[in-house]
């Protein structure tokens, strides 16, 4: 029963997270760094606000490394949680290959944890964001993610409940996913708007570039996690890899 061995699953989740984190860190270095520099130049050009926190605790190169380390650490931690949730899902959803299940779970995680908050509270570069509202913004952001995860669970339950009533698959999918999307729309209206104004010295083009780059880094992370974990746990992929190793290894 290797498919249900929790320790192996957690180790593979952490490994898949590490791989996904390295990919995201490369995106951070190659793609996010450019708008990051433009945003920092704007921030540096401003007169220092009285009582502003020291932004120069670390040098610029150290912060670039810190940003990459953060991507890897975050991806490994998400990978561990992913493995536990995967096992919980695997007990409930049987008619799916391990690889397909991993991809589905990553897609749902990306939608609830990245897309939903990204549409309501888009990412902002340094230089945007009032320190006085950070706690408020954090609770809005975290609670919206929690709501997204609840919606994913509701959709899962609705799909299963309709299966017991012998609804055809496509109809179940439309009702479960459509219902979740409608409720997400309600959440957009109910959750308060980001209280911070965009400072006039931050150009719209930079903001747009920043948000696309940020979305790209997060998409790379979740795609890497879903594909990596799927390949690591899928029995057919593991058999193929073992066969390749046996063919190469001297007898």
């Amino acid at each position: 029963m290797t498919a249900y061995d929790m320790k192996k699953l957690v180790a593979r989740g952490a490994l898949a997270g590490l791989l996904a984190g390295v990919v995201a860190a490369l995106v951070s270095l190659l793609i996010v760094e450019r708008p990051m520099r433009a945003a920092l130049a704007i921030e540096d050009a401003r007169p220092a606000a009285p009582g502003a926190r020291g932004g120069d605790l670390f040098s610029r190169p150290t912060q670039v490394v810190g940003g990459m380390v953060a991507a890897v650490v975050v991806a490994v931690l998400i990978g561990i949680v992913f493995a536990v949730v995967y096992r919980w899902v695997a007990e409930r959803v049987h008619r799916q290959s391990a690889f397909a299940r991993s991809l589905h779970l990553a897609a749902v995680g990306f939608a609830a944890i990245v897309l939903l908050p990204m549409v309501k509270y888009p990412a902002n570069p340094p230089g945007v964001g009032d320190p006085a509202t950070v706690d408020q913004r954090t609770s809005m952001y975290v609670s919206l993610i929690a709501a997204g995860l609840v919606l994913a669970l509701l959709a899962h339950w609705a799909y299963r409940a309709l299966a017991k009533r012998h609804w055809p698959g496509p109809m179940r999918g439309v009702v479960a996913a459509g219902g979740a999307i409608v409720l997400a729309g309600v959440a957009f209206v109910v959750w308060p708007a980001n209280p911070d104004p965009i400072p006039p010295d931050v150009p719209a083009a930079l903001l747009w570039q920043w948000r696309l780059a940020s979305l790209f880094e997060l998409a790379a992370l979740w795609a890497g996690l879903g594909v990596g974990f799927g390949l690591l746990v899928d029995p057919s992929a593991r058999r193929w890899a073992a066969g390749q190793r046996a063919a190469v290894a001297p007898t």
Binding site: G66, G67, V69, A70, A71, P126, V134, E217
Partner: peptide, 14 residues
């Protein structure tokens, strides 16, 4: 401050 770049890049409020 060490992970500051990462927080912004990952879309977390800062």
């Amino acid at each position: 401050e060490f992970v500051h770049d990462g927080r912004h890049a990952l879309g977390v409020p800062c």
